[in-house]
Design a protein around this nucleic acid. Sequence first.
DNA 1: CAGATCACCTGCTTGC
DNA 2: TGCAAGCAGGTGATCT
Length: 263
Amino acid sequence: MPELPEVETVVRSLAPSLPGRRIIRAEFKSRFVTPGDRDALASAVANRTISAIRRHGKFIVIELDRGHLIVHLGMTGKLLLDATPGTHAYGVFYLDNGVLVYDDPRQFGRIEYAQELPARVARLGPDPLAVGFTEFEQDIRSRRGVIKPLLLNQRFLRGIGNIYADEALHKARIHPKAAASRLSRERTFRLFQAINDVLRLAIEHRGSSVSDYVDGAGERGSFQLLHRVYGREGEPCLECGAPIRRIVIAQRGTHYCPRCQRR
DNA sequence: CAGATCACCTGCTTGC
DNA sequence: TGCAAGCAGGTGATCT
């Protein structure tokens, strides 16, 4: 489910109400969602007060009075305030006022506790909404492969996923298989702008609810209605009318307009 | 170190 | 209706 705009929307939906609340106790039920000692995790967060919630790439960082909860939503993770825990509620935080439920049918998400951000999380690339063009251009020049997998690489930029990679490449009129380091300066700038525009617009529309994404209050986003290529295989390009094509790049479905995005 | 491939899960849709 | 195959917002381990 969740890429930068969705995670940002979840964080914004929880930020006004979560800080200041105390975790009375917590329960974890999946070795996939909470690798390691689940009882240790539960006792580490018991009695901790939440001081802040923020986004780091696609990670949700919940700052506690001691340590951090680092949550990744995987493909189907949901963090829901005051929801009833269902079959896939693999993490339940009982608060002094309410309950925070982590629900994740596919169990690709993760919940961990650490004093500081783990190195693999801290070392991700810059946030695409904060990076400057000079750094973006330098980084892209130094990379070898194809542009689409590079956009999905969180050590390049943190937060872009499959939907927004396809949407940004279409907006920038760049073929998803284009060689990253050989993009002209003009195309590189178009891509930089397109990433910014697409992500900001998606946040305004509270993310894309393709199947089951919802924010912390259970509300769906609406950006899926504005997708121009993602999930539109065979439908006409909204720019030129050519049918949108779906190919596979790096094991990910990739949607593009063969006329607007020439190699 | 970077890039490619596969593995980890459930659930929904499609086609026979 | 039943069943198998294919597909899905993501990362991380393990190869080369």
